[in-house]
Simulated scan of single mutants.
Amino acid sequence: MRQLGKKRSRIGGEAGSTIVEMALILPLFLLLVFGIFEFGRAWLIINTLNHAAREAVRLASVTPNLTTNNGAVITKATTILTSAGIAGATVTNTAATGTPLETTVNIALTYTWLTGIGPLLGFSFAGTIPLSSSATMRYEL
């Protein structure tokens, strides 16, 4: 008579295969997760730099007697960046030049990796990358 439901015994050597598979897959999975996190954070900071540059150049375009590195323009951009939790950015603006008259605001920031994934991927050996934004607008006065 044939026995139904007889369990086969495990072939030797398969017991540790799950640990080996996890050891191979886990670093790749963590690399992917941390990479997505860092890319999203850098993208958010670039969008904030763009917003601050646009708002500052908008103010600069209607400021009478605009000079290079005007305090009000720099304060406008710095206030936006500070409210977003971004510190250490360098903000500069140009006086109205050219034909037609135009003014430009430049913002530069050194982005520091939070997770350490950037240097691991070879993006930067120092753990930082430069981010910048620039906006130009016609001078209205």
Score class of each variant (00 low, 15 high):
H51N: 14
R54N: 06
R54C: 01
E55L: 09
E55R: 08
E55W: 03
E55H: 11
V57Q: 01
V57S: 10
V57W: 00
V57Y: 03
R58M: 11
R58S: 10
R58Y: 03
A60D: 08
A60Q: 03
A60P: 00
A60G: 07
S61P: 02
V62H: 06
V62A: 09
T63S: 12
T63C: 05
P64C: 08
L66H: 00
L66T: 05
T67C: 03
T68R: 14
N69L: 05
N69M: 08
N70W: 07
N70K: 04
N70P: 05
N70H: 08
G71I: 10
V73P: 00
V73G: 01
V73A: 02
I74T: 11
K76N: 10
A77M: 03
A77W: 11
A77Y: 08
T78R: 12
T78C: 04
T79L: 12
T79W: 03
I80S: 01
I80T: 05
I80M: 07
T82C: 00
T82Q: 14
T82G: 10
T82Y: 05
S83P: 00
S83N: 14
S83Q: 15
A84R: 01
A84P: 03
G85R: 03
G85A: 10
G85C: 10
I86G: 06
I86Y: 05
I86L: 13
I86N: 07
A87D: 07
G88L: 08
A89Q: 09
A89D: 08
V91Y: 02
T92Y: 02
T92R: 03
T92G: 03
T92Q: 12
N93H: 01
T94W: 03
T94V: 07
A95W: 00
A95T: 09
A96F: 03
T97L: 08
T97A: 15
G98R: 04
G98Q: 07
T99E: 09
T99Y: 09
P100H: 13
L101D: 07
E102V: 14
E102T: 15
E102R: 12
T104Q: 04
T104W: 04
V105P: 01
A108G: 14
A108M: 00
A108F: 08
A108P: 04
L109P: 05
T110V: 13
Y111N: 11
T112K: 14
W113P: 05
L114K: 12
L114D: 01
L114G: 04
T115A: 13
T115I: 12
T115N: 12
G116E: 07
I117S: 02
G118K: 01
G118A: 15
P119K: 13
L120G: 06
L120K: 15
G122T: 09
S124K: 11
S124C: 06
F125G: 15
F125Y: 12
F125W: 10
T128V: 09
P130R: 10
L131V: 11
L131W: 01
L131M: 15
S132M: 14
S132D: 14
S132F: 10
